[in-house]
Amino acid sequence: MKHLISVLVENKFGTLNRVASMFSARGFNLQSISIGETEDPEISRMTIVTRGDDQIVSQVLKQLNRLIDTIKVTDLTHQPHVERELLLMTLKLSKATQHEIFELINVFKGKVVDIKQKSITIEVIGSPDKINTTIDIFRPYGIRELARSGAVAIHRGE
């Protein structure tokens, strides 16, 4: 099954590479990985989405812990958490479709970030599932380009 892992790491060059190359060296699935600084500039938070059975995920967690630059590894999957992903997408635009497109943007609580004569760029934020649905729904209108941030997640506060 899918697991969502949050990892606090030293904010040093090479850390992302260490984590990513550990996944490839050990043949673990790596669906997405995202990284950014935390409130402490010396520490970054990585959010990793991986798939595997219990035995494999337990190895993933232990191997992550074993890296010297990881400070804390948490499997958020079965804990209260918030998970979000950002989607940026440029769509074809025409007189015929623009009305429907605008309506759908509203439905998905998206935002228009740029608009040209023949294209429109939108942003949508949501769970990776919602992002998948968004892409499916917009596909028929013609996707020019899209970029996904990969999931970021944190524990819900007390």
Binding site: G14, N17, R18, S21, M22, A25, I68, D69
Partner: peptide, 14 residues
């Protein structure tokens, strides 16, 4: 060499 030896060292430093 830091990149080359990342998967074969316990840790490495530049």
């Amino acid at each position: 060499i830091v990149g080359i030896t990342r998967p074969i060292t316990k840790h490495n430093f530049l």
